[in-house]
């Protein structure tokens, strides 16, 4: 009895020792900086730095300046569009790979679908700007077939295309993972009970893979709304996204308090999305 307790205490101490480095690291280099940023967001910028007077001025500014509020709205619109489009494009692709492609070629098909991950993220956005430009490849082909040219470069459409490209690859992976986890006999059972392919999909496959899709969609939302590179390279300064506004404060105005306040707003948006997803997952019947 006492020996067992001794082992348990020793186990606990060992567990704490092993976890401590990661915990300390997280506290020092993640929690502290975040707390500092929250504090700074309540300070004010001066010509050469900041003063530590506490106020909500930066947040008031966010809600009263149409350009700032507009940037948040732009970001939300772009992100939601991208998330929906990517899921719609990726789900059938993942489905085809999981169901139609012979098992031994599935890995190859998946690898092929994510190979462009290994081009640099920045270079990929840049490549899209080349593809979509007025004299770019897409218009070159359209002209060759005598079709009207598209003006896609430097626009919100270009941002959405660039993002959708990246997140379709990501979602094919995550959705495929949840599709292959389905036990095959479940579908067979449904078929034996007389369900057609559409009914099987609607009542069996979709509900069971939806949690995986939701997690992928949340990941897409979180990564997309926080990204600076894609809107900066592909957006053509047409409408500002929230991360661009943050970087304007850092790069041009040296206004760290405002940048911090906007970052907190960004975090709040991601948290809201997370809560929405968590709540949806908890709902009975889902």
């Amino acid at each position: 009895m006492s020996r067992a307790l001794g082992i348990e205490a020793r186990d606990r101490r060992r567990a704490m020792l092993l976890t401590a480095p990661a915990l300390v690291w997280t506290l020092v280099f993640f929690v502290l900086p975040f707390a500092l940023m929250a504090a700074i967001s309540l300070w004010q910028a001066t010509a050469t730095g900041m003063i530590r007077t506490w106020s909500l001025d930066n947040y008031t500014a966010f809600f009263t300046r149409p350009a700032y509020l507009g940037a948040a709205l732009n970001s939300i619109e772009i992100t939601v569009t991208v998330t929906v489009l990517s899921v719609l494009l990726a789900y059938p692709m993942a489905w085809i790979i999981a169901e139609e492609v012979p098992r031994r070629y599935q890995r190859l098909a998946l690898t092929l679908a994510v190979i462009p991950f290994w081009t640099s993220y920045i270079v990929r956005s840049y490549a899209w700007s080349l593809v979509l430009s007025r004299k770019g490849v897409v218009n070159d082909w359209l002209a060759g077939w005598g079709l009207p040219l598209l003006d896609l470069a430097n626009s919100r459409a270009a941002v959405v295309i660039g993002f959708t490209h990246f997140f379709t690859m990501l979602l094919v992976l995550t959705i495929y993972a949840s599709l292959v986890q389905l036990p095959p006999n479940l579908r067979r059972a449904a078929a034996d009970l007389g369900a057609g392919p559409v009914a099987i999909f609607r009542h069996v496959v979709l509900p069971l893979t939806l949690p995986g899709v939701m997690v992928g969609a949340f990941l897409t939302f979180a990564l997309c709304i926080g990204d600076y590179v894609t809107p900066q390279i592909l957006g053509g300064g047409k409408d500002l996204a929230l991360p661009q506004l943050v970087m304007l404060q850092v790069g041009r105005r040296a206004d760290l308090p405002m940048a911090s306040a906007l970052s907190i707003v960004l975090m709040a948006l991601v948290t809201l999305a997370y809560l929405a997803m968590a709540r949806w997952m908890k709902e009975p019947g889902k």
């Binding site: 300046r65 350009a67 940037a71 732009n74 300064g237 409408d239 506004l245 304007l248």
Partner: peptide
């Protein structure tokens, strides 16, 4: 001017 420029961009 910077505020005006932000509005211009947006």
């Amino acid at each position: 001017m910077q505020d005006m420029w932000t509005r211009f961009l947006a």
